[in-house]
């Protein structure tokens, strides 16, 4: 089943074309890595998928619900971690999660249970009552992921979630998210420019110059392009606009 489906998506700011004919999908329970250099259009794509603004052309569907015509249903199934941190620094970790839960219509008792569950899974439960200002970058990221999972989404979008984390922190985060795919059947779209975050089992979409340069299983990309490594494949796909 397609968790996320993009069909011929295009967008421009004034006269500047930033995304052109973007089409790919993410299957339920799969981890899809959206690879692209800085400025490739990943963040704009995330803004369109999350309905922050509508694309000039094409469509976004989440489990069959069009973002343009049925945004509430589409957004209810989606958890998002934006590249830019969106935690409220004046509030505690628990208060941030409670605010998110309220926006998703969760009852107070459910919110209480899930707050402890999700923060516990991400090993930041001990920071429940601490202001976000006092948390490290890695802890803030984990709180953001816990928050995105509060309403039990079936699709998780992460825009460069490992930016600012050290290597062990990045590995732990990727491992946790892959666990979500396996154990909960969540579909994940993970945008990054770190090639080492891709594993052979992942799906990969390479975005460059606002266009999709390649989409498919990660273990096929080197064979199809006739190169020795993912780094070589990525370099070839992104060497020209």
């Amino acid at each position: 089943m397609k968790a996320l489906s993009l069909d011929n998506l295009g967008h421009s700011f004034k006269d500047r074309r930033v995304l052109d004919a973007i089409s790919f999908s993410v299957e339920q329970g799969r981890m899809c890595i959206l690879l692209g250099r800085n400025g490739a259009g990943k963040t704009t794509l995330f803004s369109l998928i999350t309905g922050l603004y509508h694309a000039r052309s094409g469509s976004v569907q989440v489990f069959g619900h069009a973002m343009r015509t049925d945004p509430a249903t589409a957004l209810a199934q989606m958890g998002v971690v934006f590249q830019q941190q969106t935690l409220d620094l004046d509030l505690t970790a628990g208060e941030n999660l409670r605010y998110h839960a309220a926006l998703h219509g969760l009852a107070a008792d459910v919110t209480k249970v899930r707050t402890r569950e999700e923060l516990g899974r991400l090993e930041v439960l001990d920071r429940l009552g601490d202001p976000i200002r006092s948390l490290s970058g890695g802890q803030r990221r984990r709180v953001e992921i816990a928050r995105a999972l509060m309403h039990q989404p079936r699709l998780l979008l992460l825009d460069e979630p490992t930016t600012g984390l050290d290597v062990p922190g990045r590995r732990a985060l990727a491992q946790h998210v892959r666990g979500l795919c396996r154990e909960r059947g969540i579909a994940v779209l993970w945008a990054t420019h770190f090639l080492e975050e891709v594993t052979a089992e992942d799906d990969v979409v390479v975005l460059h110059g606002g266009r999709v340069r390649w989409a498919g299983r990660a273990d096929r990309i080197t064979a199809e392009l006739g190169v020795g490594s993912m780094a070589d494949a990525f370099a070839r796909l992104t060497e020209s606009a």
Binding site: T50, L75, Q84, T86, H104
Partner: peptide, 18 residues
């Protein structure tokens, strides 16, 4: 500017209501 507005605007409710 800080990004927390995105959280509000991606909530599954009509934007005018939010």
């Amino acid at each position: 500017e800080m990004g927390s507005m995105r959280l509000l605007l991606t909530a599954p409710l009509p934007r005018w209501y939010l």
